[in-house]
Each structure stands twice: as C-alpha cells, then as structure tokens.
Nucleic acid binder design. Structure first.
Length: 292
DNA sequence: GCACAGGTAGATT
DNA sequence: AATCTACCTGTG
C-alpha cells in the first residue's frame, strides 16, 4: 500500500545542488533518517516527513497529504540551512593549495552542511559509535518506532529526550543499541533534571557549547563536534573520527600527531569552516577518491 | 571464528 | 599524560 504522499512539486528556493552533492548531503553520514526509495529519498526530522528527488537540475518535494506546502518549504529551508552561502564558503576553503581537498571538492561541489534539530543530532550521534551508517539508521528507526510520535505519513519521529527518560535502558537495548543504551538513558535522565539545559547549550558560543555537551554521559569530543556541526551550524567544529584521522595521517602525512594537534592543524589549515572541509574529506574518502 | 565498525570512560602504565 | 580495554551487535 502506497504511503499517503501528495504530488511532486518543485522546491522553488532550493539550494543549488548537483545530483552527487544532493545525495551526499542528505545521505552521506550527516543525517541518519533518510532512505533511498526508487528514484527519491524519504526523510524525517522533528515532525516533518518529506520526500525529495533530484529531477532536471531541480529539487522536487512531496509531503503527506493534507500538510501545508508553504510550511514544508520553510522547514526545508531551515533544515538545509538556506541562509548560509555554502558556495562562498566552499570557494574560501584552501583547495587552491591543497590537492587532497581540491579532489574532494571537485567531486562533491555543492555539498552542504545540514542544520538538523539539535536534540535529534545529539541522539543520532550517541547511537553512532563504532557502528556503520546502515546500522545507525536501523537503530534510530527502531527507537523511533518504539518511542517516537507518529507523523502524518504514518511513520515515526525520533523520540524527545523526555520520552526517552520516561522509558528505560532496557527498552533502548531492545533496539540493539548495546552499550550505547546506558549512555543514552543517562543522558536523557540528566536532561530531564535540567529543563532548558540543552536549549541553552545550543545557542552558547561554540567552545562553551562543546564543554557543556562534554558533560553528558557518552559524549566525547567527536560526538560533541558532530552535534555542533550538523545540529547547530557550527562550521568551525571539526569532528575527528576514524576516517578523518586516517585521512590526516595518510593523505596529509601527519603520522603521530595527537588529537589536539590535529585539531590545531584543522583550524589553521582549513580555517573557520573546517567542519565543512571535514565533510568534503569524509565524502571523498568514503568514495575511495583519496587514500584513507 | 574473528576483525572491524563516523567512540567513550575508566583503568593501567 | 599517553596507552590499553571493556562495552553491544551486526557484517564481511
């Protein structure tokens, strides 16, 4: 039975994408709530359920029947951070004297950093440790089905942190979260005792926001930086995961550098949008374009 | 069977 | 302060 989505419409104010940069932006490891179905992607965030497809150099969208197209486009604009000029930021990256970054940008030009809901981003990356992307997606979906609110198309949103706090570690483990279940449940309880705490962290200056996130059980530097980059538009946050560490050591020949030294290198070399550069490198490495 | 996967925290050296 | 190690589960 087909899901109750309406007709395809052109997203008039969509950012400029190539087919590659479009696919990589929504389904390249920034977000874990998109799935490819036939020739389109279906995704969810907050209470939104949307289908998107790249068609004739444009982005078309479809939304559940009976939902408001104007509101949907506003929510899309927010999610895709349409207030940010990524073309300008891309040009400002040091690709002119960095052949590795140049290769990555040539292939994925037009890539964007999403502006996902802060609380959901934190949750998804708490699920992500030593998991492959398909598994992270499966876990998020399982938790959404168990604890998340129903959406207009019959699918489920991710649960709020309050809803997780009212559940249990055991229920999280049922979603195959493994050892991550304890971190997530303890973080939920931490947040439940501190109304407004996460919202304050979201708008704090980046360093303060990061140190706040690091107070949460299971949140280390990498997850904190992913939350800041993909969930708060902090393009200066440079998450160093196993991929980025390999890229920096092999392609940038920084063998033996410590995490703090790699952070310093990223800030100095890539500049104030180092997190944006990070996503290009991550995409290129996963595509096998640069050695990692 | 076994290593590894978009890590973190606590123990050990 | 740097380097192990345990922690769940699925995949190759």
């Amino acid at each position: 039975m087909p899901k109750p989505f309406g007709a395809w419409q052109v997203w008039v104010d969509a950012p400029k994408f190539s087919e590659t940069s479009f696919a990589e932006t929504i389904d390249g490891g920034q977000a874990f709530r998109w799935q490819k179905i036939e020739d389109f992607y279906e995704g969810r965030w907050d209470k939104n359920a949307v289908r998107l497809k790249y068609e004739n150099e444009q982005i078309e969208f479809a939304i559940p029947l009976g939902t408001d197209p104007e509101a949907a486009q506003q929510n899309l604009a927010s999610y895709f951070a349409c207030d940010v000029d990524f073309a300008q930021l891309e040009d400002a990256l040091p690709w002119r004297n960095d052949p590795v970054l140049d290769t990555a940008i040539q292939h994925f030009s037009g890539l964007r950093i999403l502006r996902q809901p802060f609380a959901e981003t934190l949750f998804c990356f708490l699920c992500s440790s030593t998991k492959q992307i398909p598994q992270i997606k499966a876990i998020c979906e399982a938790v959404a089905l168990d604890m998340g609110e129903g959406l207009a198309d019959g699918s489920h949103a991710l649960p709020t942190w309050a809803a997780i706090a009212e559940a249990s570690e055991k229920r999280l483990r049922a979603a195959k979260l493994g050892y991550r279940a304890r971190y997530i449940y303890e973080t939920a309880c931490f947040l439940a005792e501190r109304p407004g705490w996460l919202e304050t962290a979201e708008v704090a200056p980046t360093e303060e926001a990061r140190s706040r996130l690091l107070e949460l059980p299971g949140v280390g530097r990498k997850i904190a930086d992913c939350t800041l980059l993909f969930g708060a538009g902090r393009l200066e946050a440079f998450p160093i995961d196993t991929w980025i560490e390999k890229i920096l050591t092999r392609s940038f020949q920084l063998e033996g550098w410590k995490q703090t030294q790699l952070q310093d290198f990223a800030r100095i070399h890539f500049g104030s949008s180092s997190g944006y550069a990070q996503q290009y490198l991550f995409a290129a490495a996963r595509a096998g374009l640069i050695s990692s």
